[in-house]
Write a protein that binds this DNA or RNA. Structure first.
Lengths: 197, 197
DNA sequence: GTGATTCGGTACCGATCGGTATCGAAAGTA
DNA sequence: TACTTTCGATACCGATCGGTACCGAATCAC
């Protein structure tokens, strides 16, 4: 009997699932969370925006809670460590990343902030999205410039690495729009750099 | 005909309202917002916790939206300008105020963050609670120490005055608990003071 | 073709919620 | 006493939502 590839093994008989449906469902959930909040993100509204049937949703996730967890987990946060050649450039690049590129992430997170306090699974995936890669990237930048001698050895790395994303998140969630680039540069020049030197 | 006092004029015939009922309702709304979020804060749950009837609530506010606005507006934020005699002491006192005393305020605000984005009235009262007195108090502290010569004249006053409450709010709302006093002191020493001198 | 699965769409069910109306009792004023 | 309003409690209504079941059409493996 011929060996079956793992892919062929996993493939079931019958019509295969359209990968685009899953992607459009998760994107629709994220959009609706931002626009209408958790309660306003009904299964019917998700199906309508994703242009699919409700059955396509329940075929993939058993409950609404699992669906939202999947949508939050699908928020990809680029964790690239910037390398512009200067300390200031790296810090501005990293901070700008939180403020602008993660606008969608922060908005989705702000919309489920209340549920995070009551859903362990949701809290875990949310923390993994925000508190993980971004803080690690900023930490790596600062520590690299410690090695270069541009940042003092006893600088409050963890404090700053946690403060910048927190402030960006707080600002975005409270004002409901991304930080201005000027404000980001000002924060780096007036707050971050003085604290590190 | 004898002159009527304004108080007597306002007093209606019939059983007067119990002022304690209004207070317990608003407190119950705040508690429930923190524990159960906006959707979980049902009129029935509020009445049960406040030990009153649902009619007592609808007699005072026409809709749930108005009730929540009143509960948020009832969050009193002390706007005292600390005067400890030293710049560092004043900054620590002000920052500690946001981090600890306003724990309840930040939790309530975090619970309605999603609704704030869609309810103008709610956004206004929320901003009035957080973005008003606290920022003004911190601004006053810094400007006073500019006059004393301890803070440089071109210091980024507005940036710092906005950053500290924002960071405290972001931290409380994300971690769902108050900031440690050590963390507050560290933030003042490592971030705020270097930025101001 | 045959069978299995997914597709979008719809009908249905039980539960919940916001809001209204009403009740008898209590607590005030005139 | 007569009247008015608030009190807690309850019944009720319309709407909505999560979740389930089912439909005929489409799409795959065999």
């Amino acid at each position: 009997m011929g060996a079956m590839s793992a892919e062929a093994m996993a493939r079931q008989a019958g019509r295969p699932r359209d990968p685009g449906v899953e992607a459009s469902i998760l994107a629709a959930v994220q959009d609706l969370l931002i626009e209408s909040g958790y309660a306003g993100t009904t299964i019917g509204a998700v199906a309508e925006r994703a242009r699919c049937g409700r059955s396509a949703i329940y075929r993939r996730w058993e409950t609404k809670a699992e669906l939202v967890v999947a949508a939050v987990g699908a928020l990809q946060v680029a964790a690239e460590v910037p390398d512009t050649g200067t300390l200031r450039g790296d810090l501005v690049a990293a901070a700008m990343h939180f403020a602008n590129a993660d606008d969608r992430t922060a908005s989705v997170l702000a919309s489920i902030l209340s549920e995070i306090g009551r859903d362990d699974e949701l809290r875990d995936v949310a923390y993994r999205v925000v508190g993980g890669p971004p803080v690690a990237a900023l930490t790596a930048v600062i520590e690299r410039w410690i090695d270069e001698g541009q940042v003092r050895a006893n600088a409050p790395v963890a404090l700053i690495a946690g403060l910048v994303p927190t402030a960006a998140f707080g600002s975005v969630s409270l004002r409901r729009r991304a930080l201005e680039p000027d404000a980001v540069v000002q924060m780096v020049d007036e707050v971050v750099l003085p604290a590190l030197r």
